[in-house]
């Protein structure tokens, strides 16, 4: 067969991607941020494992949560974590949340034509100690918001968050804080409710919710059981 492009093209009958499901969510408050994800990993109608952690700490006040294709997510996190470590060695301070958010965008866009099939949320505290949530698409478009939800349960949870947390438009002058007025414990309760609800209807969300809470005292984790079906 000639290899000058004139011969028939054969395409692979396999896909380099898989959707392993899962939902990730984050809510920013005035002085805290809550980031949550379920721990189910699925493929098709199979549950592969009930204990796959989707949230990883990237620097001292910044976490990354990824749903989508797990092999891409793991690779992405390994790369970013290594860069954060290098940054810390070179600059003698941990990478800030806002810088990390930009780096993630660049890293995703770098793979524009063979994307990481991951749906990411970055949650952390910014330089002023205010909660920050950054939400992405698979190729690096991103935006700072005060709450976001991505992954298989997005369609079920996002409307609830819109209803409960929508605050002042960023277009209003003089500018007002867009952080949610909820207290930290209220936000955690809301997150738990969201996951319990999504778990009822979305087969890719379930098993356990892992909730990371970052505030001025540091990072703390909570777990809540979800339905196993």
């Amino acid at each position: 067969m000639p290899h000058d492009g004139s011969g028939p093209t054969t395409r692979a009958n396999w896909s380099p991607y898989d959707n392993n499901g899962g939902t990730v969510l984050a809510v920013a408050g005035e002085d805290y941020v809550v980031c949550a994800a379920d721990t189910r990993m699925s493929t098709g109608y199979n549950i592969l494992t009930r204990d796959y952690k989707k949230i990883d700490q990237m620097s001292d006040k910044c976490v990354l949560a990824s749903a989508g294709f797990m092999a891409d997510a793991v690779t992405l996190k390994k790369t970013l974590k290594a860069r954060c470590t290098t940054y810390e060695f070179q600059n003698d301070k941990p990478m800030g949340c806002v810088s990390f958010a930009q780096m993630l965008s660049n890293t995703l866009y770098y793979r524009r034509f063979f994307p990481y099939y991951t749906f990411n949320i970055v949650a952390g505290l910014d330089a002023e100690g205010k909660g920050a949530v950054f939400t992405y698409d698979a190729v690096g478009s991103y935006e700072r918001t005060n709450y976001s939800c991505q992954g298989s349960g997005q369609g079920l949870i996002m409307p609830v968050l819109d209803n409960q947390l929508k605050t002042v438009s960023p277009l209003v002058l003089p500018a007002q804080s867009s952080a949610t007025p909820l207290s930290e414990s209220e936000a955690v309760d809301l997150v738990k409710d969201c996951f319990a609800t999504a778990g009822e209807r979305d087969i890719y969300t379930g098993d356990t919710v892992e909730i990371w809470i970052i505030n001025k005292d540091g990072v703390r984790k909570e777990y809540q059981e979800l339905k196993l079906d």
Binding site: S15, N20, M41, M70, T75
Partner: peptide, 8 residues
């Protein structure tokens, strides 16, 4: 085959 992995 495509690198997806887990422990259980």
């Amino acid at each position: 085959m495509i690198g997806q992995h887990y422990e259980d």
